[in-house]
Amino acid sequence: MRPFKYTHVNTVQSATQLVSTHSNAKFLAGGTNILDLMKEDVERPDELLDITFLKVADIKMITEGPNKGGVSLGALSNNTETANHELIRLNHPLLTQAILAGASAQIRNMATNGGNLMQRTRCPYFYDVDMPCNKRVPGSGCGAMEGINRMHAIFGWSSKCIAVYPSDMAVALAVLDATVQVANSKGQQRRIAFTDFHRLPGENPEKDNNLLPGELITAIELPPNKFASHSYYLKVRDRASYAFALVSVAAGLELNGNNIVQAKIALGGVAHKPWRALRAEELLKGKEATEANFQAAAEAEMNQAKPLEYNRFKVELGKRAIVRALDMAMNNGSK
């Protein structure tokens, strides 16, 4: 870990101003990812702006949104309090499950909602500074492309990068049609649709998301949803807990009797961002909620995948996971 200046910031305004004027400064919230990466020498800020002392009212509240059932999540609320907040548990249980599928109790007590969106990939070539990685050092090449890419993307990757986005929470947020609220140093607010927040790697894998320099996430807003009683977050992994996803599925079904008014599905562990399964959603719209229809939708979605040498299994696993998650959503998550 390189030497860095440690600075408390007290207002959103001063935080965004400092990060704009100090070119190599970064925000410190829960620290669960950035300190890990600084110890690995992957992240090398020369200043950390500790935003955890910002006022509760500015950025740490979980409050009911303007529409009944809508919720605003403070960016600095931690994962545990978010997952267990009654507004979330009762109205957005999918988010509760997704958050609780990630990391460990200790980490969720530290990690913040904003920080969760700012996580970096767990690609081992990104994490090891002695390996090539276009995300870490643009132009150095992708170690994973011809390497051990079992954990890597099957959708939306580019010749520059095949990393996947590691968050579970974000997969649920993609389904919940969340909006990310950000502030900049001029005191302006901006809202970004969640599905536009993260990027595909394209030519610039060093950019994980569409935040502009100097912007700070202040809140994540969730509109009311109509599938609170028919949703499920399924995570498939190499061990039962405390492991990143091979494939995960967030599924929500808005039903009219046994008819699907609308299905919302997103996949984790398969792309550089939470992957909305739009083709599957489209196919399910207006259909009966049957195993055969789930199967057809999953096939249609996963058949678009472009697997790599060691992750072909994710195509079949994705199909099965989508069907299973939809089944579970039908049963309201009962196992």
Binding site: E86, R89, L90, P93, L100, S334
Partner: peptide, 8 residues
Amino acid sequence: TDQVNVPK
């Protein structure tokens, strides 16, 4: 936990 959408 089987059911999460219940009051604490």
